[in-house]
Design a protein around this nucleic acid. Sequence first.
DNA 1: TCTAAAAATCTAAACGTTTACATTTTGGAG
DNA 2: CTCCAAAATGTAAACGTTTAGATTTTTAGA
Lengths: 342, 342
Amino acid sequence: MENKPNIQDVAKKAGVSIATVSRVINNQGGVRRVTEEKIQRAIEELGYIRSAAARTMKRKDTKTIGVIVPDIQNPFFPLLMAGIEQKASERDYFTILSSTNESPVIEEKIIRNFLERGVDGIIITTANEDGEYLKVLEEQGVPVVAVDRSIKKFDVDTVLVDNVKGAYQAVQRLILQGHRKIGIIRGPQHTTPGLERYIGYQKALEDYGIPLDESYVVDGDFSEASGYTATSELYHLRDKPTAVFSSNNMMTIGCMKALDALDWRLGEEVAFIGFDDVDIATFLSPKLSVVARPMYAIGEIAFTLLHDRIHFKEDLPKRKYLLSPELITRQSCAMTDSHIPR
Amino acid sequence: MENKPNIQDVAKKAGVSIATVSRVINNQGGVRRVTEEKIQRAIEELGYIRSAAARTMKRKDTKTIGVIVPDIQNPFFPLLMAGIEQKASERDYFTILSSTNESPVIEEKIIRNFLERGVDGIIITTANEDGEYLKVLEEQGVPVVAVDRSIKKFDVDTVLVDNVKGAYQAVQRLILQGHRKIGIIRGPQHTTPGLERYIGYQKALEDYGIPLDESYVVDGDFSEASGYTATSELYHLRDKPTAVFSSNNMMTIGCMKALDALDWRLGEEVAFIGFDDVDIATFLSPKLSVVARPMYAIGEIAFTLLHDRIHFKEDLPKRKYLLSPELITRQSCAMTDSHIPR
DNA sequence: TCTAAAAATCTAAACGTTTACATTTTGGAG
DNA sequence: CTCCAAAATGTAAACGTTTAGATTTTTAGA
């Protein structure tokens, strides 16, 4: 009785064959009440737990999906996770999560690992939109759903947020408020969100006949630190912008810290809207206006797409979802009367 | 070539036996350069990926640890995770994460699942400190490290934060600032953190000869909503407290929202210190004083303990770590002169 | 009581690794 | 050129399931 009990031990103890035990474990029916009870008792007494490894070996599936995110500390992703898990648990799928820290190298390792483990599918916000190395997933026949960032060299089901629209709305709002000198803290231009949000910004300016001023465009890398630096850059321009649009939540945080440090007064000297909702939004005064993404819903949709794909690999064309973000207008985009330009 | 290639296919293609292939895969050495190259080429060409399931079946280990947290949306836990993963990846361990949503029922399911998957160990912040059902882990010989919350009926390695001390320091600070009417928003008293932080509060009052006033003690459940309600309760007391101590981060958030809604002015009419650091702390004015827990470090220690335990199951007495939290004093515990009591 | 169909149960063959142990190959000393 | 130890490689037996297909038992109608 040294080693862990296996199905054999249970069968022996219950005086039946392993096939019958298996049937009970997977409750497939076709077992008499009394037999089943005998078996349950044996399982109980032995403390038997079926080995997922052995099962996977025969069955070829794992009822597990892998989720890969670039930064688990960005609150955006726990929310996404929650949406995924909600749907997954409804269907008895189990979720395993790994974070790449935005490193393609780590991402590749994780994918390798997921593959070895035989996940049934993967939901990913990739750290490398090029996606060349993701093709291994296709080769191995593992369904993939891309979330938040699309993958260039690899056509998969995708759930994105309409970044262009979100940024457009934000900047439009600032313009309607009377601003013409609007700064943008961009994300990396090789990422979809970074690029598209910039496009939204450009479009809004264009539609309202405001010429693009390069000096108002500063680059960040979606990190808090870069938001801080970028804000400082804008502040030190001879001709400061009167409004700032930040391209994601972490940079917004850095931005707020910078405003405070520079004593550049939010809502008085400078208006602000950020992409992504942030916890601090309603705690600042004035409260922050933001473009909110429906992350939970995105997670739910992503899982649903993946699930379909797992069960009907065959045909299904690739599907692309584009969810609209919501502009939540609070006070930070207005300005104290005396400061409103013109 | 329909199905996924296995070690057999590789062996055949390279013209060697599976034993040799296995040796290469696990680079155990003792294979000639040329043979190895042949095999690598075959692996490459076939797109072979070794099955973790089959391997686990023989080896009995998975190089995987399971992490169970009660609420992945509480930023506290991603930070913990980051600490764990840091150390884990150094040792080539893989981490799988699940969230219980504070539900013991879900927790039990997750444990079951982890067990079936054969995780080598588990790090858990349990949703049920009673822990009766955690004994199955002991039976199955799976090492466990408890983090942040201890487990009553199950003696395991534990990493805790000194809650009593943290709460004591916070309340002490308020007292030294001149406050005598100090409210506390408690966490659930059946949880270690909830109880201990209350004890710290009591102790501080006692040491400074301030009688405990029951009406200043209100209960929350560590959720944002409960923090909001509790704050409102304190506000509506005939004799309001002049200072409030909140027992965790989420309740602190609710608390801040309530202060705002009630127009109960932080730092002017009421002083405040919260247990746990929160993002918003430095964005509020006045900035929030908090008791910060070294979550990242806790994660690192937890993994290290677990790793030891995995490799030296035998003897090792159970170890208990108690880390000191840090009181970060900002302006919210002071008060505008005119309002300081006495 | 007998019989045939239906229900329950069993047998045995995978699944893809790892690993003791057996066998073959290699390369250098004599 | 032989021989031998050392190095390289191969053989075969697990590991713990699931599941066709075979076999036994049960059930119920005659």
